[in-house]
Amino acid sequence: MERGRVGVLTIGQSPRTDVTPSIKGILGSNIEIIERGGLDRLTEETLSEITPGPTTTTTYISRLRNGKSVKIDKNKLLPLLQEELTELEKETDVTIMLCTGDFPTLKNTKPVLYPDKVLRHSVQAIMTKGTLGLIIPLEEQKKSLVEKWHGIGMDIVVEAASPYEESDLKGAGARLKEKGADLIVLDCMGYHESHKNEVKQVFDGPVILPRTLIARIAAEYVF
Rank of each mutant, 00 (worst) to 15 (best):
residue 95 T to E: 10
residue 101 G to Y: 03
residue 137 P to K: 00
residue 144 S to I: 06
residue 121 H to E: 15
residue 94 V to G: 09
residue 135 I to V: 15
residue 160 A to M: 08
residue 116 D to W: 04
residue 135 I to S: 04
residue 131 T to V: 11
residue 147 E to P: 01
residue 159 E to A: 09
residue 162 S to M: 04
residue 178 E to Q: 14
residue 92 T to W: 00
residue 145 L to I: 14
residue 103 F to L: 10
residue 173 G to C: 14
residue 110 K to Y: 09
residue 124 Q to V: 11
residue 106 L to W: 03
residue 166 E to N: 02
residue 97 M to F: 03
residue 94 V to D: 04
residue 97 M to W: 03
residue 133 G to I: 00
residue 127 M to V: 05
residue 176 L to D: 15
residue 169 L to C: 09
residue 163 P to C: 11
residue 143 K to Q: 06
residue 165 E to Y: 07
residue 90 K to Q: 13
residue 97 M to E: 12
residue 165 E to W: 08
residue 159 E to K: 04
residue 129 K to A: 11
residue 164 Y to L: 04
residue 175 R to K: 15
residue 107 K to W: 01
residue 148 K to Y: 12
residue 157 V to D: 09
residue 138 L to E: 12
residue 97 M to P: 02
residue 127 M to C: 11
residue 94 V to T: 14
residue 175 R to P: 03
residue 141 Q to L: 00
residue 158 V to I: 09
residue 135 I to C: 09
residue 138 L to W: 01
residue 130 G to W: 01
residue 150 H to M: 09
residue 126 I to Y: 08
residue 107 K to M: 08
residue 116 D to K: 05
residue 125 A to G: 10
residue 143 K to W: 00
residue 164 Y to P: 01
residue 145 L to E: 12
residue 130 G to K: 04
residue 163 P to Q: 09
residue 108 N to D: 12
residue 156 I to G: 11
residue 145 L to K: 05
residue 124 Q to G: 12
residue 141 Q to V: 02
residue 145 L to G: 10
residue 101 G to P: 02
residue 125 A to F: 06
residue 176 L to G: 13
residue 168 D to M: 05
residue 120 R to T: 15
residue 169 L to S: 09
residue 94 V to I: 15
residue 139 E to G: 01
residue 98 L to Q: 13
residue 135 I to N: 06
residue 144 S to D: 14
residue 148 K to R: 08
residue 112 V to N: 07
residue 111 P to W: 10
residue 163 P to W: 03
residue 136 I to Y: 03
residue 132 L to I: 06
residue 155 D to K: 07
residue 166 E to Q: 06
residue 146 V to F: 05
residue 135 I to M: 07
residue 125 A to H: 13
residue 136 I to N: 02
residue 101 G to A: 09
residue 154 M to S: 02
residue 171 G to K: 02
residue 124 Q to L: 12
residue 103 F to A: 14
residue 149 W to E: 11
residue 172 A to M: 09
residue 143 K to C: 00
residue 169 L to V: 10
residue 149 W to M: 03
residue 96 I to H: 10
residue 140 E to V: 00
residue 93 D to P: 06
residue 129 K to E: 15
residue 178 E to L: 13
residue 120 R to V: 07
residue 109 T to M: 02
residue 123 V to G: 11
residue 107 K to G: 12
residue 164 Y to R: 02
residue 144 S to T: 11
residue 144 S to L: 01
residue 124 Q to N: 14
residue 118 V to F: 15
residue 104 P to W: 09
residue 140 E to P: 00
residue 114 Y to P: 01
residue 136 I to Q: 01
residue 145 L to N: 10
residue 120 R to G: 12
residue 98 L to G: 07
residue 126 I to H: 08
residue 99 C to Q: 07
residue 105 T to R: 11
residue 178 E to G: 11
residue 143 K to G: 00
residue 151 G to H: 06
residue 119 L to R: 05
residue 144 S to K: 01
residue 166 E to V: 11
residue 93 D to A: 12
residue 104 P to E: 15
residue 95 T to S: 10
residue 139 E to K: 00
